[in-house]
Design a protein around this nucleic acid. Sequence first.
DNA 1: CTTGGTTTGTTGAACATTCATTCAATACGG
DNA 2: CCGTATTGAATGAATGTTCAACAAACCAAG
Lengths: 234, 234
Amino acid sequence: MAAMKSAALEGLSSEIEKSAEGEKRGRKASKEVRRHQLIEATIDSLAKRGFSETTMADVADGAGLSRGIVNFHFESKEKLLVATLKYMADEYSAHWRSAYQKAGDDPARQLELLVAADFDRSICNKRKLAAWCAFWGEAKSRPTYQALCGARDEAYQNVFVEICARLKTDSAYDYEPYETAVGLCSMLEGLWLRLMMGTEGMDRESAHRVATEYLASVFPKQFSRQALGATRIA
Amino acid sequence: MAAMKSAALEGLSSEIEKSAEGEKRGRKASKEVRRHQLIEATIDSLAKRGFSETTMADVADGAGLSRGIVNFHFESKEKLLVATLKYMADEYSAHWRSAYQKAGDDPARQLELLVAADFDRSICNKRKLAAWCAFWGEAKSRPTYQALCGARDEAYQNVFVEICARLKTDSAYDYEPYETAVGLCSMLEGLWLRLMMGTEGMDRESAHRVATEYLASVFPKQFSRQALGATRIA
DNA sequence: CTTGGTTTGTTGAACATTCATTCAATACGG
DNA sequence: CCGTATTGAATGAATGTTCAACAAACCAAG
């Protein structure tokens, strides 16, 4: 298993070396590369056509491959979709964990970087947001999706609760840490929803400004308002 | 046209008189009653099976009618779905407008009632939330859905911006009214999303508490914290 | 109050289309 | 030349839509 994975990674990097595009058409592309290629095509289709209109043919065409290929690398359409959701969940998790780690031990800086990470271009763009929303729309009736979407939040939210609790004791705030943290997480998701919808006058920068305004209101001892939203004090 | 509508309404009320359930199986049910019956069955199916698995047969069976009936009262599946979304959007709009009107002229009471209205059982229940989310998931790739979902927010959000602006000048707050209002609206939507997902330990009451905690943090001169979330001051 | 005819709502089977899946044939790499 | 990835046509199931037949309500005339 481990050997297979390292072989796959070698295949990936060698592909990147050989082709300017990083992915190859030829038959030598490894299994992992193909899977990745098909998952990306799935995200494309979800974003362009929506969940209910995404077909195996769309995905195959989008990847520039033949119709039957998806059932070879994934067993079924359902498993392709689960793999795609898992891919996005893993990517999201890695992204905020990286931001969290970079922030060090200061809770205010942790908040600042976690919020900023949520509006980073690499994960917060129309394509990915549309794909997320497509899965949300089906999550209620599919336990597998619900579990993957829910797992995404659980650890994330706990980190926010922890930070809010520390800030309360450190700076003698009056709020309820749990409710404040859940409120912030919910606001971030709601802002994503608006970005995805393409609501009038809403872009990444505006959304980030709204979130930092919240930080300035709730944590005035750590964040102050400036020209473009709130910034951290000291 | 007007005559037709009044005839339909007479049919409705006579139905209500005759049947305890308010809707009748027999042939005498008016066009409006049938449409309503089919729309309710559509919401049921969206909530139970999700958007992509909702079929005309499901809707017809759910309403206890035959297969071809939907194409008679609505022209196509697409138009049935649009009518359903419009139905829910109208209901939502009427609901918050009613709460807004009841609040009178006090901005703090307006906020209190508008937020409470969002978590009222009549519109905030698993069935309706699931149906909303089903439409959200398809909205990006369907301009018609996007317009109906977007129209829902526009007026709603403007009311919040107006209230926040009034509270700022009345009580000498320091926040940005627009960002604060958009943040609150986004948080409400994010909380809906969590309620729909069935996130661990999240129910209507918890969500309402999270929202009122926000009010207490941002408008401390109007809202204070008590045992169960924040309440309005005098 | 009947009668007969017209309109309108309803049914369920037939139809055409779309789509996921299968698989035998093929081509490439080792 | 063997094994594996890939192709694309065939297949069968699911589903939206159509439509001819039917039934209930309605209405005007007797």
